[in-house]
Design a protein around this nucleic acid. Sequence first.
DNA 1: TGTCATGTAACATAAAAAGTTACATGAAAC
DNA 2: GTTTCATGTAACTTTTTATGTTACATGACA
Lengths: 153, 153
Amino acid sequence: MKQDSRLSATLHVLLHMADRGTPMTSEELAACLGTNPVVIRRTMAGLRETGLVRSEKGHGGGWTLARALDAITLGDVHRALGEPALIALGHRSENPQCLVEQAVNAALDEAFAEAEALLAGHFDRVRLSDLAADFSRRFDDRRQAHAKHDKAL
Amino acid sequence: MKQDSRLSATLHVLLHMADRGTPMTSEELAACLGTNPVVIRRTMAGLRETGLVRSEKGHGGGWTLARALDAITLGDVHRALGEPALIALGHRSENPQCLVEQAVNAALDEAFAEAEALLAGHFDRVRLSDLAADFSRRFDDRRQAHAKHDKAL
DNA sequence: TGTCATGTAACATAAAAAGTTACATGAAAC
DNA sequence: GTTTCATGTAACTTTTTATGTTACATGACA
């Protein structure tokens, strides 16, 4: 199953944008991900429509966050991306005549709905500021590790 | 995201096999799903190795269930299919150098692990006999609806 | 007015599920 | 024993979706 990494990519990009403060071009953001600038523009288009980011053309232009990090949840981003399916499994056919298949679909739907609701709920509770805080913690950890290493030399 | 419908297909096939009682050929099972016999054989190969089904060659051959319906869970079938990923979202890269990406991965992994565990747990609690019972209920419902319809004529 | 940046269409690539063809192998029927 | 039926499996094609790329139009600032 090929996995959709747009949510991961978008979160990455948004955190870099917040970290920078000033507008970042599609080219700069693409470099962060090792991808193509057009991929960035295409992906960010949805976020712009939802009001999560702003874009400016011309000199000094680029992308900026339209809200504070603590005012954006993972759920907001997921919805802005068009709510891609969370569950990797699906049915063979919708509205089958076969009663066996109807029973199978019903059982799977129930299981999927449960997991999907849990995941969606989780997404709605996690803010970008939470990720930024985790980043800061990792940053400090790395700095301390380096300091220790330098001292040992 | 292309969804994997092998679990759905396999459950469908297994229930038909149980309903029949005698061996069913790949061709018959393929007809149930509107697919190709080779797809059936390929998919069932994993189930045979796990001991969920048996296959016989030659005249009167075909596929039969190796266990009772209440001794097979959805989880058994999922594992026999090679445990295909349950979550449709993924990371851009594993073990990234970028601390931002590390923070993103950590946040998503946590969310995914939670949902995946819920779904896997659900699969382990549902037996094929549960689906068969639901099928029977639907069958009776349809029969009653038909009877009512006939009476009205 | 030229440069920089986004906006977007159109096309190419990659990966995985699903479908197909072809043929080898083994078991039962005749 | 030979024919027929069925699985076993390799190799290939098709389809779908995410992703990557090229090309060019549009708008903003120096």
